[in-house]
Design a protein around this nucleic acid. Sequence first.
DNA 1: CACAAATCCTACTATGTCAATATGAATAGC
DNA 2: GCTATTCATATTGACATAGTAGGATTTGTG
Lengths: 149, 149
Amino acid sequence: MKITTKVELGIVVLTDIALYSENGQVVRSSEIADRQNISHKYLEQILLGLRQGKFVKGQKGIHGGYQLSRPANRILLCDILNALDNNILANTYEADDQQAVDIRTSVNNCLWSNFNSYMRRFTENMTLEDLIKDYKESSGKQKDYMYYI
Amino acid sequence: MKITTKVELGIVVLTDIALYSENGQVVRSSEIADRQNISHKYLEQILLGLRQGKFVKGQKGIHGGYQLSRPANRILLCDILNALDNNILANTYEADDQQAVDIRTSVNNCLWSNFNSYMRRFTENMTLEDLIKDYKESSGKQKDYMYYI
DNA sequence: CACAAATCCTACTATGTCAATATGAATAGC
DNA sequence: GCTATTCATATTGACATAGTAGGATTTGTG
């Protein structure tokens, strides 16, 4: 049970695009690859997923690049997870006979479905906008600190 | 990002052992395999992990079997996860240069560390005892219902 | 002691997923 | 028509998981 690098990088990439397209310009994938130290080819895979998830739209051609396709506060963490990770957790054990509640069914209903809701509560309330704010704050702090050195 | 079957079954097995050893008797692995529809050999793997995690102790010999090695309210979900799953989530990205806070570091600190704490809050508060109670309640309900058919 | 039934231990295999690469097609501007 | 970009698909290698196999060890019992 871990966060895949595709998800991890996907979020970084989204944040990068959001930050570097604030004036309406598009962001080339090669820029992102350089800034974030990601293999360009692998980045294209990630961008494919992000595009299919309707988070970004690409503009082809010589002055092409990427942009968010909706405001950052409408991009939820749960949607990113669903778009970039196949196995987003869902324990779907079904008992053979529905009459008696066996242990496996009970654990499935009581534990894992609660766990799912709990996770959803987090991932549905976290937006890309939050991450951008976090970044701006933390990078701001750091700069202040460095001024005093 | 999914719960491994080893974890899922491990919890079922622990619950089974807890329920069927309430009077102090030990539970044979073949019983468990039958009740829970698990391959006996695979079950032994799971029990190995549970034993190494100090959740159960086995008694060898002809009248051997398994028992919990501590009270069910001292067996935490987080411990089970750690014992049966290698990749319990930990995003440990470290920036190359520590001077500037880059996007990746920021996401790591703000998002994933929060996510970790959030998860820990759940898994540290869920005990095997809770699961047993859940099972007893749900199986009780079911029986009541069936009486009225 | 010998046997039987259980746990315990280690190695192995097959399958699948993930990370990453490779190749090239489609598109848009100059 | 050239170039730089996105878009799409196939492939590879490494690794983890699920499950199997065989046998060693222990313990009670006749």
